[in-house]
């Protein structure tokens, strides 16, 4: 199985002035393989978004290195990275003038020339992404006219249009009703089964367990663990790492 995403001794966090504030240190067993759907879980403030942003190249790691398809990410240009990895972020501020189709078309930009002209195969691919995400009928609507679920699907369609092996999503199931949560997870599962490596952070642990192949856990001490769902101890491990002792009695079964 091909590792699309790897990290060695990675430390993620922030810089405040000259002081470094590490949030998760020494991540070394992080490996995202082709065909895997992976949930990144951890309590609020444990650094899920920071880790995703670092993996996506949106902020610098404090230490360590990352590899995309075996190549050190420092050796890749932003344009090369944009053809390997795409993102769906929580804090999106999308212009009100963008229609769903225009938004998804932006995903093709790494493949266009300076004037951003889309050729026929780009347009076909955009159409395909709109179909896969089930929002083709909304193509001419403005992004802001959509419901939360539809917006999330359009953002995923945009990421798909970028045609990358890796997709990182920051809490894609947040604020969605159960139908849309399942729609989104099913869509991601299907995409992973076609060979992509998809990592998403989430608080919908129980529901996500039914879909994912692997879980990445960040515990409160800021240490990183990954486990395959094939591991019979996976659920206990998650419970151990994420449920505080005083609440264990509330959670019998994940």
């Amino acid at each position: 199985m091909k590792a699309l995403l790897e990290a060695n001794n990675l430390t993620v966090g922030y810089k405040k002035g000259k002081t470094e504030i590490p949030i998760i240190s020494g991540i070394s067993q992080l490996q995202g393989a082709s065909g895997k759907l992976i949930a990144l879980i951890g309590m609020n403030g444990t650094g899920k978004s920071t880790l995703l942003r670092t993996l996506a190249g949106l902020q610098h790691p404090l230490a360590g290195e990352m590899h995309l398809s075996g190549v050190n990410s420092n050796k890749l240009s932003v344009v090369e990275k944009s053809k390997m990895l795409s993102v769906v972020l929580t804090h999106y501020a999308i212009s009100g003038l963008l229609t769903v189709e225009e938004l998804v078309q932006l995903g093709r930009y790494p493949y266009t020339n300076w004037s951003a002209t889309l050729n026929a195969s780009d347009l076909d691919f955009v159409q395909e992404c709109l179909e896969k995400t089930g929002i083709l009928h909304l193509r001419n609507k403005l992004f802001h006219e959509l419901s939360d679920g539809q917006q999330q699907k359009s953002l995923i369609a945009r990421a798909l249009a970028q045609n990358t092996g890796i997709i990182l999503l920051d809490e894609p199931t947040n604020h969605l009703d159960i139908k849309n949560k399942v729609d989104v997870l099913t869509l991601l599962k299907d995409q992973a089964s076609h060979g992509k490596c998809i990592v998403f952070s989430t608080h919908d642990i129980q529901l996500s367990m039914k879909f994912v192949d692997e879980v990445w856990i960040i515990d409160q001490q800021g240490s990183f663990t990954s486990t395959s769902m094939d591991n019979p101890q996976a659920k206990n491990l998650i419970k151990d790492k994420l449920v505080p002792a005083e609440y264990k009695w509330l959670v019998d079964e994940l």
Partner: peptide, 9 residues
């Protein structure tokens, strides 16, 4: 669509 998305594109 913002600077973060811009960078990732």
């Amino acid at each position: 669509i913002g600077e973060d998305y811009g960078k990732s594109l």
